[in-house]
C-alpha cells in the first residue's frame, strides 16, 4: 500500500517532483499526480513494470518532455527544458557511431563551447575513472555494450552535473557484465557524490543499488510504494546478495508487483 513520503529522515532535497501528470495528445494518460523527493547524494530507483511511465518520468525530470501538470524542481529551480544541473545516461548509450570515445565523452562540453584541449583533458580523466583508459580512440562499434555504457557514463560525468539521470542503463548489457557495472557504479559514486535517479525494471538491480526505491504501478503510472533501504552501502556485493534482508526485500517487492503482470 502506498506509504507517505515522510517516513524518510529529513535530508536536503536535490530533486523534487511535485504533482506531475502526463497526458499525451492522443489521450493516453502516462503519469498521474506523481510526488517524489530525491535526497541529495542518494541513489533512488524508479522501479516498475513496462508501461508504468518510469522512463517518461525520468525524461520529464531531464527536461526532455514538458509535463502536462505539475513541475520538477532541481536545486530549487523549476525545470523548463534540459537543465545543466542534470546529466542523462541512455539505455541505448546514445553514442555517436561516427565519433571516437574521446569525442563522445567530450561531446557535452563540446556543445557548451569548451575549447578542444580543455574538454579533451576533462574527458580523458573521466574515461580513466570509468575504467576505459586506453580506449580513447576507439569507435563505439568496436566495443562491447558494457564498454559503450561506460563511455555514456563518462560523458554524463564530464559535464559535472549534480544529478545523474540513468535510464535503464544496464538493461542492454549481458548479465555478467551488468553485475560488474553495477559494482563499479557504486564504487564510482563513493568518489563522485552524485544524486542519482535510476530507472530500472529489475527488482534485484534496484534493491542492490538503491538507497530508496520508488515503485510505480502502471495505467496510468502512479507511485504505489516507496521503500528505503541501505543495503547498497553495506559490505561487498556477494555478502549483500546473500543477506536475508536483501532476499526478503526482493521477495516483498516482487509479490507487490506480480499483480500488474496480468
Amino acid at each position: 500500500m502506498s506509504l507517505p513520503d515522510t517516513t524518510v529522515p529529513a535530508r536536503e532535497v536535490a530533486v523534487k517532483v511535485d504533482g506531475v501528470g502526463m497526458v499525451y495528445p492522443t489521450g493516453t494518460e502516462a503519469l498521474r499526480d506523481i510526488a517524489v523527493e530525491f535526497p541529495r547524494g542518494a541513489l533512488v530507483s524508479l522501479l516498475g513494470p513496462s508501461g508504468c511511465g518510469k522512463t517518461t518520468l525520468l525524461k520529464i525530470i531531464a527536461g526532455l518532455i514538458e509535463p502536462t501538470r505539475g513541475q520538477v524542481i532541481i536545486n530549487g529551480t523549476t525545470v523548463h527544458g534540459p537543465s545543466p544541473a542534470s546529466a542523462f545516461v541512455f539505455q541505448d548509450f546514445a553514442l555517436m557511431p561516427w565519433a571516437t570515445v574521446l569525442r563522445n565523452v567530450a561531446f557535452g562540453l563540446e556543445l557548451r563551447g569548451v575549447r578542444k584541449r580543455e574538454r579533451e583533458a576533462i574527458a580523458r580523466k573521466y574515461i580513466a575513472e570509468v575504467g576505459l583508459a586506453g580506449a580513447e580512440n576507439r569507435y563505439p562499434h568496436e566495443m562491447s555494450g558494457g564498454m559503450r555504457q561506460r563511455a555514456g557514463l563518462a560523458r554524463a560525468l564530464a559535464v559535472d552535473a549534480d544529478v545523474l539521470l540513468m535510464d535503464e542503463p544496464f538493461s542492454a548489457i549481458d548479465e555478467q557484465m551488468r553485475r560488474k557495472l553495477q559494482e563499479d557504479l557504486l564504487s564510482l559514486l563513493r568518489v563522485e557524490k552524485k544524486t542519482v535517479i535510476f530507472v530500472t525494471h529489475s527488482i534485484e538491480e534496484a534493491v542492490y543499488l538503491s538507497d530508496r526505491i520508488v515503485i510505480l504501478s502502471p495505467n496510468p503510472g502512479e507511485v504505489s510504494q516507496v521503500v528505503d533501504t541501505s543495503l547498497a552501502h553495506e559490505g561487498d556485493p556477494e555478502t549483500i546478495r546473500r543477506d536475508p534482508r536483501y532476499v526478503a526485500l526482493v521477495d516483498e517487492i516482487w509479490s507487490g508487483l506480480k499483480r500488474y503482470l496480468d
Partner: peptide, 12 residues
C-alpha cells in the same frame, strides 16, 4: 537514432 537527439538536447 532519436536518443542521439535527446542526448544533444540534454546537453543544451
Amino acid at each position: 537514432n532519436p536518443s542521439l537527439i535527446d542526448m544533444a538536447r540534454t546537453h543544451h
